[in-house]
Amino acid sequence: MLQLKNVDVCYGSFKALSNISMTVDTGGLVVLLGANGAGKSTLFNTLSGLNRPTAGDIEFEGTRLNGLKPNAVVSSGIVQCAEGRKLFPQMSVHQNLMMGAYVHRRDRQGNKRRLNEVLELFPILEEKAEQPAGSLSGGQQQMVAIGRAMMSRPRLLMLDEPSLGLAPLVVKQMFETIQQINSLGTTVLLAEQNAFAALKIATHAYVMENGQLVMEGDREAMLGNEDVRKAYIGA
């Protein structure tokens, strides 16, 4: 579904991503592990069209993505739910969700159906529909952010640190919801520092360090890998 071949990204003379090659298969739940500053968000922003690769190729369902603008990337089916949520804080929850349907704005019936599906995933958002998104708790804001991304009807959903700053119980629910989204047919690329929880639901994983992919493998291989356990799981 998604293929990266030798992708480099530079900020001026600083090379933020170096020689990234990875594959995400249709229907998979691929986890990207890495510490702060490893380059996970840079990679996501590059896939979203916010950064331009200086070398290499990005292909999504056979189409080359290099140089596409963010709106064209969303239209092509890749949607990012970014770290920090990036909600519209003074807009209501309902308005935030509907803004997610911007690229499909002419398909009102389809958006209505999609909204119902999102509200089934996050029933609490129906109660909070008229509240400003900025007034919700961290966990509820994360639900709005994922819900908004789902309203864009992604075929590949990229989630950047969705568990960041959330209470343990909420984190558990969040990972269950991500697994549910995946099981309903959306391919997921998940960047996480909470490695154990992320690997438990993953089909495949990559490890990133200093802007490079240093390891990859399926769930069992990664959970069993001594280095991964020491560096990211702490056991």
């Binding site: 979203s48 069209g49 916010l50 603008k69 963010p70 709106n71 990337v73 969303v74 239209s75 949607v79 990012q80 739910c81 970014a82 949520r85 990036k86 909600l87 519209f88 803004m99 997610g100 911007y102 690229v103 908004r148 991304a149 864009s152």
Partner: peptide, 9 residues
């Protein structure tokens, strides 16, 4: 950034 992420031009 949020506006870019939902595909606003």
């Amino acid at each position: 950034d949020g506006a870019f992420l939902v595909g606003i031009d």
